[in-house]
Structure formats: C-alpha cells, structure tokens
C-alpha cells in the first residue's frame, strides 16, 4: 500500500531531514509517525500524499511509483489519499457542507449526489446539523472533524493526518481518534503523526519513529516505540 525505499529528503542544500528511510505499510494498518518537532514527521506525510517529492529514493503509494508519476496524474493519486494537514485549510467563505462537497465536485460528481455524500460524511464525524455553518463558527475540534470529513468523503484508500489532535483537549482528541479508528476498521489505511504517546498507545499497532532529523526507526510493537519516543 505504502512503501519507502532508501528515501532521502532535503530542502535546498541543507542537511537531510529524512535519510535512508525504508518501510512498508500494508492495506488496513493503523500507523503513527512519531518524533519531536522538526524531525520530519510532516515531511514524511507530505511525501506519502504526493505534496512533496523525495530528493532520492523510491516511494510507492497505492500501487504507483511517485517518482515516476507524471504531474498530470498526481491529482488522481490525491483523490485516493485523504490528507489532513496541521493547518486544516478550510475555506471560511463557504459553509461546512460546501467545504466537504469540494473533493466530490472536483471529480465531476453532480451537485445533488455530492451534497448527499457530504452530509453523510459530516454525519460520520458527528457534525450532523452543522452543515450550513461557516467553519469559523465551529470549535477547534469541530473544525478538525470537518477537515476529516472532507478528507474521507471521497472514500480514500489511505488517510494521512498531520498532528490532528495537537491543539485539542483530551476529550476532543479522543473523539477525533475514535473517528480515525472507525475508518481504519472499515479498511482505510491510516497514517497519523503525533507526539502524544498516551494517544498512540491506545490506538496504534505500529509506530514509525523519527527521533531526530535524518534518523528513522520502524518500531514494532507499539509499546517499545512509545517508550523510545519519550
């Protein structure tokens, strides 16, 4: 499903933020990417989502070699990978429903069908009844759930989320993680970056550890990794 082989990533002439990263994630896995700030968690997730390109090495996502993927094919890969970035990138000039409909309209789905599917996605993340609100009217946790709804509305095979619980209280973080777990249970491969070991212990069965820039450990089982991360 996701395979990194000898992947390096650096920006400009700077040092490698990722160096010789190798791992393989099979379909349906729930994986955390852990490590301190600046260790390369976001970069790793962006490489999976095709939002960044590797400096060296081979990345395969959903059966496609990203380094060999032409630019015009990248949008189709992104439809198969639901992405939730640290900044939720919600559009504040339209309703919550319109935000979630966007990935469907991009694929050319009729507005009525897109509306129905977007409502269903909002329902799944517990935002039923808030369809017509602007994202600015939602709380931080609700905005995060709205971003999740937008990421999953296209029924992606892979879901990646960068620190989705970073600014949330424990209750909201639990609620968000439960949403991810529910999607994972129906077969969606889930890759989440976090430094919250308690959260990881409760949900993940595997952790990719980035202890510092240029270092990488693929940790099994979870307990050893979470111990190592802290």
């Amino acid at each position: 499903m996701i395979e990194f082989q000898h992947v390096f990533k650096s920006y400009g002439r700077g040092r490698n933020i990722l160096a010789d990263v190798n791992f393989r994630i099979t379909a349906g896995e729930f994986v955390f990417v852990s490590g301190p700030s600046g260790a390369g968690k976001s970069t790793l997730l962006k490489l999976v989502g095709g939002l960044e390109t590797a400096s060296r090495g081979s990345i395969q996502v959903n059966g496609q070699r990203l380094d060999q993927l032409p630019a015009r094919a990248r949008p189709y890969l992104r439809r198969a990978v639901g992405v939730i970035l640290q900044d939720t990138h919600l559009l504040y000039d339209r309703t919550a429903l319109a935000n979630v409909m966007l990935p469907l309209l991009v694929t050319g789905l009729p507005i009525r069908t897109a509306g129905a599917r977007a409502r269903a996605a909002l329902d799944k993340v517990g935002l039923n009844g808030k369809e017509e609100l602007s994202p600015i009217e939602l709380s931080g946790g609700e905005q995060q759930r709205l971003a999740i709804a937008r990421a999953i509305v296209n029924r992606p095979a892979i879901l990646i989320a960068d620190e989705p619980t970073a600014n949330l209280d424990h209750g909201n973080a639990q609620r968000i993680m439960n949403v991810f777990r529910d999607f994972n249970r129906v077969g969606v491969t889930t890759l989440i970056s976090s430094h919250d070991t308690e959260l990881m212990a409760g949900y993940a069965n595997r952790v990719l550890l980035l202890p510092e820039p240029g270092k990488f450990q693929d940790s099994h089982p979870i307990a050893a990794a979470t111990g190592g991360a802290n």
Binding site: R78, R79, H89
Partner: peptide, 8 residues
C-alpha cells in the same frame, strides 16, 4: 485546497 483534494 482544491489541489490538495485532487483537483486537476
């Protein structure tokens, strides 16, 4: 955002 969600 449109590019992020797969817009060509």
């Amino acid at each position: 955002v449109a590019r992020l969600v797969g817009a060509t």
